[in-house]
Design a protein around this nucleic acid. Structure first.
Lengths: 194, 194
DNA sequence: TAATTTGCCTAACATACGTTAGGTAATTTC
DNA sequence: GAAATTACCTAACGTATGTTAGGCAAATTA
């Protein structure tokens, strides 16, 4: 899919509506309307409504998986890896808020075969994150009695950003990831009692 | 709405389907079918499909708001309050997983007026949680440079439980909330370097 | 026992949906 | 300049949807 192509424009317009109304409630007529054309015209560029959802979901999944693999290939200590993994994740997600929201919320509406593939990719992503925690334990930097639990908790915090992030707000993506990394590593508790 | 009433049964059946398929994709015929009756028969007990969603969302919202108000009325220190608030939240959410999932995911489909009311309630809940962090800072137990950020991060972690919690799994709700509270207070970092 | 209410039914309505068929004008390719 | 392609159009299809109208038998109430 080449840059700026009509197909990409449709995907963008659809992502915006899927985010606002949900996949089920946003119709092909809505999508076409937002582009100033008729619904039937969309079918010159895309195969089906389902295909649009697939493109959005897997485009995000691909980017995130690529990122975690890169992080785990670098010769860093666990704390640095965690910091970088979170930074990448936040950058990817804030880079396209509409697509990210659809990716996080609407993936359930993927057709059966694609859904299986999607869940598989998500599991691989979680496993990549988990590897960092395992490294951290070996290096005696982290402790996590239940690593699956810890990963899910971390990812939930990272993903929730789509719900409140405002590109015009006071925090930029890297500030957010720094803040988040600090919170995940040290929590709320004051370290040196006053 | 009295206990075990037909209306309550409908709400339960609907919650299950709204969770599985989403509000938009689960039809009145689906809901009726899961109860072994016809779609039209539902209208002897409920006003509309929208009403079912409202009942589910506001029932959860009411319970959570009541809980946070109670916590903030108790003469506890901030750490104890946080612990209790999280414990209550986890109990409420794990107590009805179907309704909780709908409450967390499908509230966007509420009609305009109800949506406004819902968001207002959610803001009040967040404010109640934030109050605990403010107390904690005054008591020198917590530090949180950006309290809004901290609250959203905490709540995202707590709410994510609906995505993986299994009543037959190895952790019960109170174990989960203990685990979570520990994580939120102290993070991942090993405190005493080995 | 008569009157009322409850809980469901069948049938139908109007509307909205994803998608296909077939066409037409403008643009690109040879 | 002819041929092919692109990007859109109108019209229509079959199906699914939320909901209403009107009825009927069983249970409840008086």
């Amino acid at each position: 899919m080449q840059n700026g192509s009509r197909k990409e424009q449709i995907t963008h317009a659809a992502a915006k509506l899927f985010k606002e109304k949900g996949f089920g409630a946003a119709s092909m007529r809505d999508i076409a309307g937002s582009m100033g054309i008729e619904a039937a015209s969309l079918y010159s560029h895309i195969k089906s409504k389902d295909e649009i959802l697939e493109i959005i979901c897997f485009s995000m999944a691909d980017r995130l998986l690529k990122s975690i693999d890169e992080v785990n290939d670098i010769y860093f200590n666990a704390a640095e890896k965690l910091q970088l993994a979170i930074k990448n994740h936040v950058r990817i997600i804030t880079g396209d808020l509409n697509a990210s929201s659809v990716f996080l919320r609407e993936w359930r509406h993927l057709t059966k075969a694609k859904l299986r593939k999607f869940v598989d990719m998500r599991n691989r992503y979680e496993a990549g994150f988990m590897q960092i925690l395992v490294n951290g334990e070996n290096e005696n930097v982290f402790e996590a009695t239940d690593k699956k639990f810890a990963v899910l908790t971390i990812l939930s915090a990272v993903n929730w950003i789509t719900e409140w992030y405002d590109p015009k707000g006071k925090m930029n993506p890297d500030e957010i990831s720094n803040h988040l990394t600090e919170f995940i590593m040290n929590g709320l508790r004051v370290k040196s009692p006053a």
